[in-house]
Amino acid sequence: MARTTDEPSSAGGARSDRAARVAAMQKAERARAGRRRAALIAVPTVVVLAVAGVVTAVFVNRPEPPSLDAVTTADYEASVHVTEPVTYEETPPMGGPHYSVWLNCGIYDAPVPNENAVHSMEHGAVWITYRPDLPVEQVEELKDAVSGQTYTVLSPYEGLPSPIVLSAWNNQLPVESADDPRIDAFLSKFVQGAQTPEPGALCSNGVGTPTG
């Protein structure tokens, strides 16, 4: 009688099973790799979106800069030097004829000559004047505002139209209080600003002895 065997078919079945298991493992590995790639992409995306959200929030919530629409202007010619006191149109002046020597920039506890201070403004200084009866705490706040500034003059002034007046060459702003945010805005724009007739000119080595 002839003998039969099922060994070849068993081997073929085993190979088929192994191939199926290998294919399943490869499929699972591809799936895991895909999930890893997705995670690697997702994390930077989340970070970018978070940063973008923060930046957007900063810009959206950033307060509008104070308006300087109330600034009045003039059109005085520069470099007009005189030797006699001048009667100015504005109180305090914001330009016009002036003495040939400028006022040293800084803080003064007493009134300063108009004609010297106007020359300082020609050099790019901002002159902050205040009524002599301005409360002490507000005067101190003004001193803080100009602290470290090399092109500012701060001094009391009789007869001002408002408690505080800020003047630059051909530009002037009256304010009611030392905590007015327009003070910093005015300083930022006009200290050695585009209005300066003589940019780069000194605000020291002139006349006057500031206290600060």
Rank of each mutant, 00 (worst) to 15 (best):
R3G: 07
T4F: 15
T4D: 13
A14G: 09
A14P: 03
R15C: 11
A20M: 11
V22K: 11
V22C: 06
A28S: 15
R30A: 15
A33C: 06
G34P: 02
A38E: 10
L40F: 05
V43W: 14
T45G: 14
V47K: 08
V51N: 03
T56Y: 06
T56S: 09
T56I: 07
A57G: 01
V58H: 00
E64Q: 15
D69V: 12
A74D: 07
D75Y: 10
D75P: 12
H81T: 10
V86G: 01
V86R: 06
E90Q: 15
G95F: 05
N104D: 11
N104W: 04
A110W: 03
P111K: 15
P113C: 10
P113M: 12
E115L: 07
V118K: 01
E122K: 08
G124S: 05
A125R: 01
P132Y: 05
D133W: 10
D133F: 10
L134S: 08
V136T: 06
V139R: 01
E140G: 01
L142G: 00
S147M: 02
G148Y: 00
Q149F: 08
T152H: 08
P156M: 00
P156N: 02
G159P: 02
L160S: 00
P161Q: 03
I164E: 00
S167T: 09
A168C: 07
N171Q: 14
Q172S: 14
P174I: 04
E176G: 14
S177P: 07
D179I: 09
P181G: 09
D184S: 08
A185E: 06
S188N: 08
K189Q: 12
Q192D: 14
G193W: 02
A194R: 10
P197L: 05
E198C: 04
P199Y: 02
A201G: 01
C203K: 00
S204K: 08
G206W: 05
T211F: 04
